[in-house]
Design a protein around this nucleic acid. Sequence first.
DNA 1: CGCCACATTGAAGGCAGTCAAAGGTGGTGG
DNA 2: CCACCACCTTTGACTGCCTTCAATGTGGCG
Lengths: 233, 233
Amino acid sequence: MASHRGGIVQILRRAPIFSGLEEVDLEAIAVTVSVREVPKGGSLFSEGDEAKGFFLCAEGKLKVFKTAPDGREQILHFIFPGETFAEVALFAGRAYPASAQALEASAVAFIPREGLFRLIKKRTDIAIKLLAGTALWVRRLTDLIAEYSKAVPSRLAGYLLAEALRQRPTALTDGARVRLAVNKGELAAHLGTVAETLSRAFGKLRDEGVIEVEEREITIKDLAALRDLASSP
Amino acid sequence: MASHRGGIVQILRRAPIFSGLEEVDLEAIAVTVSVREVPKGGSLFSEGDEAKGFFLCAEGKLKVFKTAPDGREQILHFIFPGETFAEVALFAGRAYPASAQALEASAVAFIPREGLFRLIKKRTDIAIKLLAGTALWVRRLTDLIAEYSKAVPSRLAGYLLAEALRQRPTALTDGARVRLAVNKGELAAHLGTVAETLSRAFGKLRDEGVIEVEEREITIKDLAALRDLASSP
DNA sequence: CGCCACATTGAAGGCAGTCAAAGGTGGTGG
DNA sequence: CCACCACCTTTGACTGCCTTCAATGTGGCG
């Protein structure tokens, strides 16, 4: 059991909000944490479910999304290892504002509200980090909304740039390669469109010589043009 | 000066995050607060500006928005007296993620970061309330994104329902009246469309007998139909 | 081998954005 | 008091992007 807890501590260390914590605090949290395995396509929580804690992705890949009345999904975020999500559910009422499902077999740590609140009283800096974390979500959502006023090819260009920077935070140059983290259907749902339209957007960028597409592997051939596209309506 | 400070304390009391604070704490904050008068159309801050604090609307009406490359505005939120905004800027880096302008002559209290951080150390519950506040923004933005997957008349229906509930949180029945808080151009920018299209959406709802429109005064004639519309793509 | 998920392409139709024009309103200044 | 102007709102016509429906291709996996 002690080694299991040690494993959880290792997982917790990966999240920014727990960085800088001393061993004793991490272990205090760790005893309240449980790890959940989620199969591909499995649901972690659904919009409206009562929220009793938040999550940290240990491995795998997940999506956070809203479902429209007609069943279409709007994907708000993709979640990758090391990232926390649903922090907001701790504070905004009781219910999750969106749903979460695994895009592939995943493992997530569940951090229940109580242990966390105890820790906040002791360590104010945890509260500040949680605030920074939720503020980041606000920023992302804000940017996402701004994207929607653009045409689909522009949205795709913006996504490719952001993804390139995420994978390679250093200098970005012509010839840079980006690997799509998700399949094109999911990407379409994230960009607020459907697979067919996204396919055409890829085709347009390819025909214009801006990118090259091989399966999920994208090569940026004209970075300047991609930036232009991303910042045009 | 003491009476001026007393006035500020009164203003602060209106905000949920400061509710439950003792006089001594409120006054400690009040001495760091300044009140800004903003004329109609005046800018409070612009996207990218360095953020040194957050705001509380004392009187008037403001908008928080992103500007697209082509100059079109996407209004994220309308701000009314008693509401705080830009809290997230305190924690997510240094820059405001959006811009704010006054829709009419307004007065806002500016609460600088430093005084607030001092208070957080003393009163952990302030941190929790700030978290609840930013979590609420996440929820609103999440809902806003979900709205965008719907047609304009449906978005309008959703807005009217939300606005009716905001103005009259009690039972909502056929015949309920809603007064638009903003002019139709601003409402269009909030719904992610333009004035002409919004005008047609109002026309459609009117022709279907769902609402009645007199200037800014809307009467809900068929609540069930309005709900149906709001929850259809 | 055959099924299934993923991806691409074509054709058709509709919703919404743009451009243009006109009516209404409130405010300002002569 | 009235004339003028700026702003808001509405309506019409047109264009274009995106969604939908349908068919085909392809790779992995049982």
